[in-house]
Amino acid sequence: MTAYLPVVVAQGFHLPVSADRVLVADGAEWRTLAAEERTALSRPLTPAELELTILLFTLTARLRNACWALLELTSDGPNFDAISVEIGKFFSFKGLPLPDRAHVELVVQDASVPLSRTVLWGIVNLGEGSLTLETTGLRLALRPGEGCRLPRDVGVQIVGPPNEAANLLLLIHWPQA
């Protein structure tokens, strides 16, 4: 019986899946995906499996650009609350609705300092280089515009692009109790 990795491309999203998209811990080393593991990144999941699986997705260029416009302080653009609403509508259409009262945060990360978060619903790489997201036994490459929805209470470490000074992240938090 195949033991599937707890990561798939979310339904309704298109992401190219290369062998180095996900690295798997292999003793002290990291290995690329085998062919069947790569195929399994597109497998359908039951609702119970969905909760326990990392779901990869891509945010549209329109929404990414809106976030950047905010940073560039263009006065006639939408404010962050309006962008957060648009992001919520996007995920809702995709069948991946944000939790009620989810909190969306735009973070400029010092790329040389790994960022650790444990209570994230999801993360989007809004920067211009690939970042690495590391969780137990897995390393995921998130290219510009890509992100993932995390299983609840799964801790992740976010490592910025090696050749960038700073990186822009969109963090989506579970509502605080």
Binding site: Q11, G12, T60, A61, R62, K94
Partner: peptide, 13 residues
């Protein structure tokens, strides 16, 4: 039918 946002991006780009 899963990709209205992506189609809009495509047209705008």
């Amino acid at each position: 039918l899963s990709y209205p946002d992506e189609l809009l991006d495509f047209y705008l780009e």
